[in-house]
Amino acid sequence: MTYQVEVKDLSVSYDGENVLKNINFNVDGGKLIGIIGPNGAGKSTLMKAVLDLIHRDHGEVLIDGKPMKDVRKKVAYVPQRAAIDWDFPITVQKTVQLGTYPQVGIFRRPGRSEKQWALECLQKVGMDQFAKRQIGELSGGQQQRVFLARALAQKANIFFLDEPFVGIDVTSEALIIGILKELRDAGNSVFVVHHDLTKVEDYFDELLLLNKELITSGPVERVMQPESLKTAYQSQYGLWDTLGVTI
């Protein structure tokens, strides 16, 4: 297994309105990949469509040549923080333990080894001292670390994180990117939705630049060209242009 991800001719629409149009890409395994683009570009939608969480109009997603439903246990997904009910009666430790459920399977309860593993994953993100806290009683960065720990608990090989760096502290951000790079170095594929362009050179190996369509993809230097960025961020740059600002 190399955890190569191939997307062929993918289109998605909500209520008849096209949100993603004919997306094609093919990423080799063992890479840390940034999905970038302006707000509403369809980054989250792309992630959900690849994960088979929403209906696609047409198109195909293949992981090492296999459809998603055959490789679900190899895949971990960390949703946008806004998508979580932070008042839910659940502790940090239990949240991480949810990551073991796919392996535990139906009718069985997580046992001692699963609980131990969940604690180890919490240690990896430096959150073990908060194990008994309710998940709402954490800072944004801590919450994000807990959900990364849950993804680690899944023992997956392909990781999808939606905007993990939004609204979090620098320590958490450094810790998270460190872990993601470790995962990559161990041969896993890591996809990260990101909308801040400043750090992409430090963070990612490859980029997918998105705005409804895939504008460009490939190594970071090649994607971070003014021309393609201008196409993707058209509306914002258009405003700056009219204000007489040149980039």
Partner: peptide
């Protein structure tokens, strides 16, 4: 009792639940 785990996950985080089937 039998489906406690599944009820918990699909109530707390339905997207995660769907992501593992």
């Amino acid at each position: 009792i039998l489906f406690y785990k599944e009820l918990l996950v699909s109530t707390f985080d339905p997207t995660f639940a769907a992501s593992y089937g």
